[in-house]
Design a protein around this nucleic acid. Structure first.
Lengths: 245, 245
DNA sequence: CGGCCCTTTGAGTACATTCAATACAAGTGG
DNA sequence: CCACTTGTATTGAATGTACTCAAAGGGCCG
């Protein structure tokens, strides 16, 4: 695992984007109690039904949220990239209604709910910034429904790539080639398609010159056209600071 | 439109369920500025891209959240029943990333963001209760992904009926026969199926004796079996007070 | 270099879609 | 109050998109 930024600095950078916090507030954030832990690929971080008392700040690697079917099928509900807190909702809904797992080796910052809650009680602006993060997470899930429900296989795959690109770009990780160590099986479970379909669709997008995929790395050659194919509108990610209040 | 409860009392009843608020806090809630407005069936309440400055408390009727496809297809992202605040997320994400519409004549309580925000600043417990509501909304969206993505047509329809039943039950509206004035076209756009498929599936469920549907009213004859067919686990609705912290 | 996981491709199948046409119900205006 | 209009429900038939099963080819790690 390469050397990485202090977890809290990643969190600060993230929250700065959504809410211009003041120096005193940043100082308060730095008092948060954080334990760093590494997890292996495919390791489960929490499971449906668990009651948790910590939030996980993702420092490095990729995580997924997922639910299962009685038949054993998986549905991936979101991808998480560095800077995200995939289980921030447990602050107020401590019982997990889905599972959280690493799809790459990952580094996490464990922050006790109590520590966050005390900070939220002291400082409404920090609380609002965190609330806002959970709302974006919800917006992503809603758009995922439209994607899985009403787009063609081709548009779905393109949409997922666009979303990952936009979110990685927002944390400075979209420099070509983009490291995206997600297997086609994961893509399939995310977009509700079969591995076969994913493979064919990626090939089509490649042959049309929209993307190049090689060794878990992706290059987007024509973002505009890819977004058109995907019917992708980044609005729902609420990344644009001008769109804030 | 029949006489209905004071909007604020509905909100109070809702929040009481998620957070045991004190009398003084209830009194504060009653100071919220609320405008009651009626909307017609199929009327749009807000549209993708709108910037809004009010939240809508649903007092009577049914609302939906929806997004569109370039091809003009609709995807319904959630149903809302009395007591819900379908655009509570606009408190911190004032730009709508989807549309909100009435699928029945409905009565709404318009509450200015400013009024809610001032209350939240005065009282963290109220703020946390509202935050929690938005988190449940997100949990519903996530489960919707699994439903649309990985369940069979049969299970999907059953799942939607189970969810509506559970949510109506939580506000005392699930007494047989349940008024559920949702067209089959709406069901289709919600579960990403065609109207034909919805119709056939409802017929199957009817012939198996699980439900009766007549004139926009539904009776659930065998909830346990319906939930089994749906692979429905109500955990994600976080309705059980014992599951609170 | 061997094994494992992932990717790629082919062929037959199944589930759901679309198109189409009829039946039914509710509401409107003469 | 009835004829008319519109929207919803129901059913049949042909089509199609994506799935499953299956098997072979790569690439990476130990």
């Amino acid at each position: 695992m390469p050397k990485s930024l202090d977890p809290i600095e990643i969190l600060i950078r993230r929250l700065q984007r959504s809410a211009g916090l003041e120096q005193s507030e940043l100082a308060e954030l730095r008092t948060l109690q954080v334990d760093v832990a590494d997890v292996a690929r495919n390791e489960a971080i929490s499971r449906e039904g668990d009651r948790v008392e910590h939030c996980m700040l993702l420092v490095e690697g990729f995580l997924i949220r997922l639910q299962h079917t009685r038949g054993g099928k998986r549905q991936i509900l979101s991808f998480y990239v560095p800077g995200d807190i995939p289980d921030l909702q447990t602050l107020h809904l401590p019982t997990m209604d889905h599972s959280l797992a690493a799809i790459t080796p990952a580094r996490l910052g464990r922050i006790p709910h109590k520590s966050i809650q005390e900070l939220c009680n002291r400082n409404r602006r920090v609380a609002d910034a965190l609330w806002r993060e959970t709302l974006i997470d919800a917006a992503v899930a809603r758009t995922w429904v439209r994607c899985v429900g009403r787009l063609t296989a081709r548009a779905r795959v393109a949409h997922m790539l666009c979303e990952l690109h936009a979110r990685l770009d927002a944390v400075g990780l979209a420099k070509d080639p983009i490291r995206m160590p997600i297997t086609q099986a994961d893509f399939a479970d995310a977009m509700s398609l079969s591995v076969v379909q994913i493979n064919m669709t990626l090939r089509d997008l490649r042959e049309e010159g929209l993307i190049t995929v090689h060794k878990r790395e992706m290059i987007v050659h024509d973002l505009v056209r890819l977004q058109y194919v995907a019917e992708f509108d980044p609005l729902y990610l609420h990344l644009d600071p001008a769109q804030r209040r």
